[in-house]
């Protein structure tokens, strides 16, 4: 390998400049602001120590956002991975029809949040939304609900939309993992007398351990980053029933101008992100050994 500090620096400097100015500096600055009371406009910030963190840890809405986030995280990741796995397994053989199916399921992955939110706000609307219209037409009026306006249901509607947007991703990752697996293994286990269910649960699923692992990590990180689709669908409402840490931070920071308090939530998010990354690195080292 070539050794030269100066040459290496020339190659690495551009990405580092962007990293320092637009990521690391803002990150540290977020921690800094979290110790102040500040509306984001005044030139003067008031130092208040850990007060923002104290009010954050006494704030029931903070805990509600955290709980909503955990519910979303667990449900989305579980359903998305199981569904993606099953779809990839069922469509493991190449055929024209399966290619069309896979394309349809993948398209939501690339869609823009504003488009998705508009489609679903119309589908889920109480009065003339597509779902309720269908339900009423087949005589199931009592099942027609206010999908995004009822605090008991809204979170699950949001979760369903997020699953719609993400299943294509996990399916595609499983598809490529399965092609490298070789279908012979599956056939061989069949010949050895394993039935369909056993083949899936005892042969194919365990062989994809690494894929399950990376998909889980990717999904946790993207759940942590989730903002636009929730914000555009429900703004965290009704009554904070779909509030995530990110939407809660946005409202407190940019709508009620409590940038110090918002930055405390931001710092909490950053710490979560770093912890997740460290866990991921530890675990992947263990897997490799």
């Amino acid at each position: 390998m070539h050794k030269n500090r100066y040459t290496a620096f020339v190659f690495v400097a551009p990405i580092l400049i962007f990293f320092f100015v637009f990521l690391l500096y803002p990150l540290l600055y977020t921690f800094h602001i979290s110790f102040y009371e500040w509306n984001g406009i005044d030139p003067i910030k008031k130092f208040i120590g850990f007060d923002n963190y104290k009010s954050m840890f006494y704030d029931p809405l903070f805990y509600q956002s955290l709980r909503n986030f955990l519910v979303l995280c667990v449900l989305v990741i579980t359903i998305q991975m199981l569904l993606g796995f099953l779809l990839a397994y069922i469509m493991r053989r190449n055929s024209k029809l399966f290619t069309v199916f896979k394309t349809i399921i993948f398209i939501p992955v690339i869609l823009t949040a504003i488009v998705v939110s508009n489609i679903f706000n119309n589908i889920l609307a109480f009065n003339d939304g597509l779902i309720n219209t269908i339900l009423r037409n087949i005589g199931l009026d009592q099942l027609a609900m206010s999908w995004t306006a009822n605090p008991n249901i809204a979170l699950f509607s949001v979760i369903a939309v997020v699953i719609w947007m993400g299943t294509g991703f996990s399916m595609s990752v499983y598809v490529s993992a399965m092609t490298s697996l070789s279908l012979e293994v599956i056939e061989a286990s069949r010949i050895d007398g394993a039935n369909r269910v056993q083949t899936i649960t005892r042969v194919v699923w365990p062989m994809l351990r690494d894929t399950h692992f990376s998909l889980t990590i990717i999904s946790v990180i993207s759940a942590l980053k989730i903002f636009d689709i929730v914000y555009l669908l429900t703004r965290g409402g009704p009554m904070h029933s779909t509030e995530m840490l990110s939407t809660y931070m946005f409202t407190r920071t940019f709508d009620s101008y409590e940038q110090g308090f918002g930055s405390a939530i931001g710092s909490f998010l950053i710490v979560l992100a770093v912890v997740i990354t460290i866990i991921q690195m530890r675990l992947s080292r263990n897997i490799q050994n």
């Binding site: 990405i15 990293f19 100015v21 637009f22 990521l23 690391l24 500096y25 803002p26 990150l27 600055y29 977020t30 602001i33 984001g40 990180i221 942590l224 980053k225 903002f227 990110s246 931070m249 946005f250 920071t253 940019f254 940038q259 918002g262 930055s263 931001g266 710092s267 998010l269 950053i270 992100a273 770093v274 997740i276 990354t277 690195m281």
Partner: peptide
């Protein structure tokens, strides 16, 4: 640099607005 893969954009929004 890898760590920054997990950082949510919203968590650095306030300083980036200032910049």
């Amino acid at each position: 640099l890898l760590m920054s893969l997990a950082i949510p954009g919203i968590s650095i929004a306030v300083p980036v607005v200032q910049i």
